[in-house]
Amino acid sequence: MIPSTFLLRLAMALAALLATSGAASAHPHVFAEARLDVVLSPDHQSVKALRHLWRFDELFSSTVLMQFDKNSDLKLDDAELKDVADTIFSSLAEYDYFQLVTVDGKDVHMNAPSQVMTNFDNDQLIVLFESEPATPIKLAGTIEFGVYDPTFYTAIDFTEDANMAVEGLPPTCTRKVIRPDPDTAIAQNQKTLTDAFFNDPTGTDMSKIFATKLELTCKP
């Protein structure tokens, strides 16, 4: 007779293996060098808008060119670029335009941008848009701005800290760019992640943990 605990352990190992084969992480297929400009109100006391600029990698850009080049001239003219913009605009809506803004840990609702602009420069697709908070965000407490794709399809890269900029930040505020180290982030979140899995199996997404963030800390 074999103890049932042993069988259980074997079964768990098999289950683990099979579960792993499904519950896997996708990885980015698209890379964008990004710039975020936090636009302040004229009195420099609140955040008025977030201005985004994404320059996509040449590989993905070539896919876009191949797909949207209706007249086959290997260029994207204005009408074709508008198609690209419309497609991206409507798709991003479902993902809050890749924005996550929190004030003292609480989510801030961001309005949809009025439009998405696209351009093709040097074989690279460029996307521009501006999004405003539903109500202006007062510069007080800790404000975090994250720009990331929750589906892990696009990697939004802020290659330099200067690419997350705030013009005219009052001296009462400090600006910090946070770049989580993947290993540390996972180690720190291991327990939370495991708990979260059992409490909410639909999952918290890891892209949130990995995302580069701009943190503004303001004294009252």
Binding site: S90, S91, T151, A187, Q190
Partner: peptide, 28 residues
């Protein structure tokens, strides 16, 4: 389908759970 509406994603961004660490390494 992908978040950008162009191209298709390779599915399944769920990354929590028991194997998060291994999966994160693979992802990296």
């Amino acid at each position: 389908q992908s978040s950008l509406g162009i191209g298709t994603n390779d599915a399944m961004p769920t990354t929590t759970g028991l194997f998060a660490h291994q999966l994160a390494w693979i992802n990296l």
